[in-house]
Amino acid sequence: MNGADFRGVSVHNFSEKIPEQVVHFHVIKFDGGFFLWVGSAPVLSNLAVSLNSKYDSTPLSTLVMGDPSDTTATSLAQGLAKRTEKQVFVSYSLPMSDSSLKLMSDDLLKKRHFHPKYIYIFNNKYISFGVF
């Protein structure tokens, strides 16, 4: 009873060392979607939203906050929406200067760790999205 059966907004925090730098993840899981923040410093610098459309195979996505010339958050949200078939909010605040770090974490997120039903992030740590 203690909240487990209730609607189920849940919060998950974890971090991972990608070569040199620690990258932090913060996920809030909602009914039908989730909010993902990725960053190395606790700043909310942008926010992108993406969700699937029945008229298009590519999920619709838009940046609601931040610099529109930086498409990282938008494309990450889009990728995740496609894979998870959920509404996805993404805020991505890794320093742009370190492009290798950016690429690497993008790669980790997009290719290996996100699965349609479950989001696996970094090896053993995973968040189940199978119970939406």
Binding site: R7, G8, V9, V11, H26, I28, F30, D31, G32, G33, F35, W37, A41, P42, V43, L44, S45, Q87, F89
Partner: peptide, 20 residues
């Protein structure tokens, strides 16, 4: 209610639908 603290923002979700 979920409150999240960023250095420049406080992100507060207040929901009766389980959604943002």
């Amino acid at each position: 209610v979920v409150c999240t603290e960023f250095s420049n923002y406080i992100f507060v979700v207040l929901t009766q639908f389980g959604k943002i």
